[in-house]
Amino acid sequence: MDKERKNIVIIEPSPIVFEGISASIAKRENGYSFFWLENIDEISILQQQKRISIILINPAIIQNRLQEFVKVKNQFPEIYWIGILYSFFDSHILTTLNDTFSITDSISIVIKKINKICKDSTSKLNYNEDLSKREIDVLKLLAKGFSNKEIADKLNISIHTVMSHRKNIMDKTGIRSLPGLTIFAVTKKIITLE
């Protein structure tokens, strides 16, 4: 299963609206997990445990706390904010959000919006499939069985950098296991078998 589950947070005072939205989406799409929050303060706590992709929010929650909201939004630039509209809101509130949908919209419109956002963020990762020179250096050593620490020493870089190269190699090739990466390296003639 390479489809990683995406976390969607719904910030909305009404439990019925939360249940309604999350259940209608979950019935049609299985790649999403839902979390319910009542205000924006709890986001930073949740973000520490779960990687939040999208937040659906009732704009009434932020209309009197706009400055605070913008601060939170800037703190987590990777999160996409969608307003849930069930009444009229001033446009200066809505422009702080990335997108909106109306409570009278069909659920398929909402799902389309969500799917598109999640697809875009994944495809950006795979944009350039060619490995950089440094990534190839790391891959060669990985395929020969060296540990992160040994690779860091050999290439004179930090372990953190090795791990970040490793992650990029996996994202670009779509191969996550070590034996799989070895096959990749051999068939692409990056290493030869002795």
């Binding site: 390479d2 779509g174 191969i175 296991s177 799989g180």
Partner: peptide, 18 residues
């Protein structure tokens, strides 16, 4: 997780690389 990762690897090797 391990079983699923390797299965996906096998698929990706043939669809993307070999």
């Amino acid at each position: 997780t391990d079983i699923e990762t390797k299965l996906t690897d096998l698929k990706n090797l043939f669809l993307k690389h070999i």
